[in-house]
Design a binder for these strands. Structure first.
Lengths: 192, 192
DNA sequence: GCAAATAAGTGACCACGGTCAATTTATGGA
DNA sequence: TCCATAAATTGACCGTGGTCACTTATTTGC
């Protein structure tokens, strides 16, 4: 009945992750090749796919890990007290998300959980993002006619929109941060 | 100096598009294979890439064409007079966008123009969407503290968010239309 | 300790998007 | 009509993600 995970398995998996991480640091996410990872880890290609469903599963781990680190940092700082503060505090996160077009695409593709039973690292981060921002909103003085959770989801939607527009040549005039602030002021502090 | 486009070119391109369209109607967008398209069009693989930069360029044409048809229809109907009306009128468009996960991903990836000089069909549709909705908002009685263009961009952001959440198992409880209406009421008619 | 059972790892192979030097076909001028 | 030039087409070939029948290593029962 016992199916203990063999030491070998852990070592192999660790090496794969380690080398993948190193390769990403050297040449970025988009340039990552499975063949390079296995070559440097000293295993066969098939071994890679015994450890990760596909290349994207590894990508999710790498990118999700980075998102988690950045979220951690954003959480461990005093609550921002206005829209500009919220934008500033989320900036490192948004910078990373837009550091490569490829990264942004992967994040969007995996931001939702495909199945309840298996919530991927990126989907988890997206939830954490909403929870974090909802907390900030609850603590601050923003509109009260809708609840903080919904407002936080809106912040995420506007952040995604702003990031997408940053990649768009037609909307390059306005900076990412300026655009996001405009959206969030209209969303969080409407003056009707 | 004359460089008239040969009849042959037009015929080949038309055949490729025609067969691709037929294949999509038979098996959906995700299942489309370049090899199948060229086989049915009776040309070599290289010919395909002489007509389209890559597979995605064809995908953009097919999906962009569909979006245009649906936008046309949405434009040729009386202006909706409330949030529910806006959602209803955009429904066919949103349904198509979420008809396949793959379609949604392609749309997101190409919703922004990579270069001002070359705005793709999908990016064009996204602009048209914003213009259309901005017109509706100007004609209706919604908040006036920010301009219609910005509000329309917000509508698009919330539509994208709602569609993304529809693919997410964690948020399957609420229907797409209900969620979008909740967002849009909060966005277009805040009651602070 | 040893054999059977199970887990881990291997690498030849496939699918499919994309490239390019070579070939075929069309066009305009003499 | 024929030739020179340019445009269109070809298909063998490549890169890379992913599969799977088989081999090798590890654990378990006796």
């Amino acid at each position: 009945m016992s199916k203990p995970i063999q030491q070998r398995t852990l070592r192999t998996r660790a090496r794969l992750l380690e080398e993948a991480d190193a390769l990403v640091r050297e040449s970025g996410y988009e340039a990552l090749r499975v063949e390079d990872v296995v070559a440097r880890a000293g295993v066969a290609k098939g071994t890679f796919f015994a450890h990760f469903r596909d290349k994207d599963a590894l990508m999710e781990l790498l990118i999700g890990g980075e998102l988690d680190t950045l979220l951690e940092r954003a959480e461990s700082v005093p609550v921002p007290r206005d829209v500009a503060g919220i934008c500033a505090q989320l900036m490192p996160l948004h910078s990373f998300m837009t550091s490569e077009r490829y990264v942004f695409d992967v994040i969007l593709r995996y931001s939702g959980a495909a199945a309840v039973s298996e919530i991927g690292p990126i989907a988890k981060s997206f939830d954490r993002y909403v929870t974090l921002v909802a907390g900030w909103i609850s603590a601050g003085s923003y509109r009260r006619d809708v609840d903080a959770e919904l407002l936080a989801e809106g912040v995420q939607a506007f952040a995604v929109q702003s990031m997408a527009l940053q990649f768009c040549a037609l909307h390059a005039a306005q900076s990412f941060e300026a655009r996001l602030q405009t959206y969030l002021r209209a969303w969080l502090t409407p003056a009707v």
